[in-house]
Design a protein around this nucleic acid. Structure first.
Lengths: 338, 338
DNA sequence: CTGAAAGCGCTAACAG
DNA sequence: CTGTTAGCGCTTTCAG
């Protein structure tokens, strides 16, 4: 039976314990666990063998004190009520895991600012920072970079571009939606906006509006949903319906799903016969038969891969590049020809 | 401007740095951050002041090397495709945060066993372990307990009861569902089972079956969904429909949602007029107007509170008690009177 | 109340 | 290839 503890003292077994057992120096044990260190094959074998027998595992904490690397990366997330981010988190955790890194999760409460949390973060010697659904001030971002620790924002842009950023081309995606709606004959269009302070909303709104303008069709109305949630989508749909639109572009899927449901079940409107609706993200539920929501699919897997490789990049000095990946229009059943 | 680093060397500021600045001993800095340690009020004030100015934060890593407590608790999760668990994770992270603890997320890939991951965990000096959606062998659980570190399983039971466990009364909930279905006149009942190796499925199935038996109504069929997913629910619904049931109890909500959708949109059956469906969990989507799924609500908030308090309990020696909280039947629109 | 000293478990030069 | 030595940043006796 593998027993990770000394039976009497119940003390975790250390490298010294296995060194003593084998009659070698403690540092040799350390080296045996470093692939690049020089230890005779014979000794290395003896050591891993003894280590297993004793239940020894190098203590990451102690190691990180010296190496300044903990193998832990912090993921900071705002609310997880948007399923897009839970999906992202899942993939992020998986990708990090495959890179041999652990995820330390920082949840930023709705009202609170990320900035307050970050100082606490540095006490953990994390190897990198991935900010997934929260904004961050450029001042804090700059401090982090001065730390030489990689930081990357997913799906957020920081105006001053001091940090690495990977996101979907929200602007371009919204333009595609404008084209889709216009090409299929819609003329009374309403935009349902997400939170004002998110770059996702800004870019989607800008792209949509500009394309409308370019093609000479006006906007029949703009509703402020206030937050990205199902409930907010419902409320926005009620307000939007009063405008008698023939098409509604919701700033994201969770909003669109909430909107779709109240349009149909509360307002008695048929979607897409009476009104078309489009979202953005392509969360799992968008594909569910009850919704069949036309939307832009964010390339989550690629975004995650980008973020992780920015973290694992050779040196902490990742250039503060902004990568923008293009989304894919997924046409399902929520847009009709007019 | 708070700058956490020495400008020249870009080295994190340590307790020694602030000690030097103030001309006091390094150990005094340490004590100043320990509420129970004795430092003159005047000095403590000077120290926190200087610390703030320099941007000093005690390094948790170094501290944990001595105290053996890191302020980090590990959450191990299987797949996050079941929205019930993402909701739980959200609340867990929040509750832990409020208790001053950080969450280290361990994702266990579908095929893989938790047991393989656990040894790696101990290298992180985590203060406790919360296993949320994965099984764990009793051998490993026992090893963890010998570590003196609290471990609690949420929504899983381990036969040997060697670990603390908090879960919903799955057995009782399933009995309520049986009663509901029978009382409303259903007689051709089908059970759609989740993965065989989960205690949730076992308990729900047992409760349902036993109550059926007690009330003298037989089961018209049992479909094995194989996994807890929307897609599996769809497939199960197709198989179940062939049995011409008047009521289907799906082992959980995500299965029921998938089933509901294919029943309606692919099979052309009306729910609840032609067939009633019931789920278990009460995930967010169960309340969405398209579904209005009747289900048992798991008391997630209480479960989370229980789990966290087990972790933060005074000593590592939490008794291995199994807490079972009763779920609440939420009647929405997916069950009709027959 | 304060300082000195001894580590926590490990890695990283540096000699041999 | 191996052992010795000196810390990483902090907490914790133990004297003063």
């Amino acid at each position: 039976m593998t027993n990770q503890h000394d039976r009497q003292t119940n003390r975790p077994v250390t490298s010294r314990d296995v060194a003593r057992l084998l009659g070698v120096s403690q540092s040799m044990i350390s080296r045996a666990f470093d692939p690049r260190a020089s230890v005779s094959p014979a000794n290395r074998a003896r050591i891993v063998e003894a280590a297993r027998a004793l239940g020894y595992e190098p203590n990451v904490i102690a190691r990180s004190l010296i190496t300044q690397r903990s193998g832990i990366v912090a993921i900071v997330m705002g609310s997880m009520e948007n399923p897009f981010y839970t999906g992202m988190l899942d993939q992020l955790a998986q990708a990090l895991d495959e890179a041999g890194l652990r995820s330390l999760l920082f949840r930023v409460p709705p009202g609170q600012d990320v900035d307050d949390q970050l100082p606490a973060l540095r006490r953990y010697n994390v190897d990198g920072l991935i900010v997934a659904s929260a904004s961050i001030s450029s001042r804090i971002a700059a401090e982090w970079r001065s730390d030489q620790r990689p930081i990357v924002l997913i799906n957020r842009a920081v105006p001053e571009a001091l940090v690495a950023t990977v996101s979907c081309d929200n602007y371009g995606g919204a333009r595609q939606i404008a084209d889709l709606l216009i090409d299929s004959g819609h003329r009374r269009l309403v935009y349902v906006a997400g939170p004002r302070d998110t770059s996702t909303n800004r870019n989607r709104e800008d792209g949509f509006m500009e394309r409308l303008m370019e093609r000479g069709v006006g906007l029949s109305g703009r509703i402020d949903a206030g937050e990205y949630s199902f409930r907010a989508g419902s409320a926005a749909a009620r307000a939007a319906a009063a405008l008698r639109p023939d098409g509604i572009f919701f700033a994201n899927d969770i909003l669109a799903l909430g909107g779709l449901d109240t349009l149909r079940h509360e307002l008695g409107l048929r979607v897409p016969e009476d009104v078309s609706v489009v979202g953005f993200d392509d969360v799992e539920m968008a594909a569910w038969p009850s919704y069949r929501l036309t939307t832009i699919r964010q390339p989550v897997a690629e975004m995650v891969a980008c973020a992780v490789s920015a973290i694992t990049a050779p040196d902490g000095m990742v250039p503060a590049t902004s990568r923008s990946l293009t989304g894919l229009l997924i046409e399902r059943g929520s847009v009709a020809l007019r």
